[in-house]
């Protein structure tokens, strides 16, 4: 996120202007980069073919009201344009209807790729941008479902659940 999305001028300006930003390390004992609290940094070039939406439970973005009530949740890594699009959904109150409409639109976009480019669907991810786009749309559909599940909960409680889950996985003590 640092080398591409959080380094993008538009993302930085949007985040600083519209939100109060909180960084949470949900596995403080983990030292994946060899040093506690650090992970390897990927260059923008290395990330070019990294599928958007990947990163799962390691990369979590929660949009909350000022009192900490979760409005929307985005899981995974996205390039700047997609990240801005997804957080715009939740800059205001996200209704169940809006979320359902967005889910439908994402599924329709996925079906369109499948229908118009059947040969691309047989290629491996690394050889097809459309295949990666298709997968990313699927992950974003999943994001809408995950978001619906946590919306309305308070952020400290959800972060504690994430911490405990990492404890159970043995990532933190």
């Amino acid at each position: 996120m640092r080398s591409v999305t959080f380094a993008d001028d538009k993302v930085v300006d949007e985040l600083n202007a519209k939100f109060v930003l909180v960084w949470n390390n949900h596995a403080p004992d983990y030292g994946g980069g060899g040093e506690r609290g650090k992970q390897p940094v990927f260059s923008a070039k290395e990330l070019e073919n990294y599928p958007e939406g990947a990163g799962g439970g390691n990369i979590r973005t929660y949009l909350c009201r000022a009192d900490g009530t979760i409005l929307h949740y985005v899981e995974g890594w996205y390039k700047p344009a997609r990240f801005l699009e997804e957080i715009a959904v939740s800059a205001t109150e996200t209704t169940a209807k809006q979320r359902a409409e967005r889910r439908e639109a994402l599924l329709a976009a996925q079906r369109k790729i499948e229908r118009e480019h059947p040969d691309e669907m047989k290629k491996p991810f690394e050889e097809s941008a459309l295949r990666r786009e298709y997968a990313m749309l699927g992950l974003l559909v999943n994001v809408q479902d995950l978001s619906r599940a946590v919306a309305g909960q308070m952020i400290p409680k959800v972060l504690e659940q994430v911490r405990r889950a990492n404890e159970e996985r043995g990532i933190i003590k």
């Binding site: 960084w23 949470n24 973005t61 909350c64 900490g68």
Partner: peptide, 10 residues
Amino acid sequence: PILVFSTIGD
């Protein structure tokens, strides 16, 4: 609103 980014790492 608040945006909370949660990940492994400081």
